[in-house]
């Protein structure tokens, strides 16, 4: 749709392992994706599937207990293993973040103005006055009424939705190439969610910002994403253009998320997240098997004996691909 030109962010074979008291825990395994300017890529999955870890690893924001391998390229710059000062120049300036809880993500003891100008003054040589003027502009951009007077207000003086707009203004302060939005609407009222999503979508298109949207809410995905990446237990299980993936999901996990699995005693509710029996496993190391096999209705010996790759093996990011030995449409075909 709006995506154009070369990818601005290229992630290849990303792996993240955490050292814990109970041994290593694999959080992300072989994740690859691209995002283009103006494009919205949604990363979906249940909590614990590795989507937030993926988001945080882009700009090297994981704690020291995490080991990251693979490649995250911002245009021509490799970010995995880059020194901390380099990463600091990238953070906020080229890769910006919007987090889930606008109440706690803003520092309660500083005015919103000083929190926006902080970002500006870290990355750009601006006088205090210029930065403040820019902050007012940004607040106006994200639709905060009477921005000139609100710039001196504290976070607690804003409603949840308005706070999230402040977060977005702060993230857009330096006109970043990539905006990572980690569950940006989850903590908000349903009525406010749509407005914030529209704002994100609109600003992304207007400013040419590539957006990586982390969410568990498929309603959000359908609303604004161009493409979708479905993650399960640290792996990408299915990816493709939003419409295609919604119309013809192939992986059984995606089917489960879409609530399309006709389970006895439970009726599918279109668009709403259905409960899939069982939990996302905590993996000390990634097994050579399908990690969803334990919860999958279609699992057999093959699923437990080897990990399926994303098929078809196609380099075009717009291709619909799934990592499943028994993709759903194939089953449907067989069944007929």
């Amino acid at each position: 749709m709006t995506a154009q030109g070369e990818p601005v962010l290229t992630v290849r074979d990303l792996r993240v392992t955490f050292r814990t008291d109970d041994g290593p825990v694999s959080a992300v395994d072989s994740v690859s994706f691209d995002v283009r300017p103006g494009e919205v890529l949604a990363v979906v999955g249940e909590s614990g599937c590795g989507k937030s870890v993926t988001a945080m690893s882009i700009a090297g924001l994981l704690p020291p207990s995490a080991t990251v391998t693979g490649s995250v390229r911002l245009r021509d710059q490799e970010l995995v293993g880059a020194p901390e000062p380099t990463l600091r120049r990238v953070r906020g300036a080229e890769v910006a973040y919007v987090f889930q809880e606008p109440m706690t993500s803003l520092n309660p003891v500083f005015t919103v103005g000083s929190q926006i100008t902080e970002t500006l003054r870290i990355h750009q040589k601006l006088s205090r006055k210029q930065a403040l003027a820019r902050a007012v502009e940004l607040l106006a951009l994200v639709g905060i009424p009477s921005p000139a007077s609100r710039v001196g207000a504290y976070p607690h003086q804003f409603s949840g939705g308005m706070r999230q707009r402040v977060m977005i203004a702060m993230a857009l302060a330096c006109d970043p190439a990539v905006l990572v939005a980690d569950e940006p609407t989850t903590a908000l009222d349903v009525t406010v969610q749509a407005a914030v999503l529209d704002l994100l979508r609109d600003l992304g298109t207007r400013l040419g910002t590539a957006i990586v949207l982390i969410t568990h809410d498929l309603g959000v995905v359908a609303d604004i994403a161009d493409r979708v990446l479905v993650m399960y237990a640290g792996r990408v299980v299915e990816t493709g253009p939003t419409q295609e993936l919604f119309d013809a999901p192939r992986h059984h996990y995606t089917l489960g998320l879409l609530g399309a699995v006709p389970t006895a005693g439970r009726r599918a509710a279109g668009g709403r997240l259905q409960e899939i029996p069982g939990l996302v496993p905590v993996l000390h190391e990634q097994p050579d098997a399908c990690t969803f096999a334990e919860r999958c209705p279609a699992a057999d010996e093959q699923c437990r004996a080897g990990a399926p790759a994303l098929e078809p093996r196609d380099t075009d990011p717009t291709t619909h691909r799934a990592a499943c030995w028994h993709p759903a449409d194939a089953l449907l075909t067989k069944g007929r």
């Binding site: 924001l61 600091r88 953070r91 906020g92 993500s105 803003l106 520092n107 902080e118 870290i122 990355h123």
Partner: peptide
Amino acid sequence: GADYIRTARAKGASPRA
């Protein structure tokens, strides 16, 4: 451990800040 520290780091703030 607070969320706003994560925000500050995501802005590119130095450890000192």
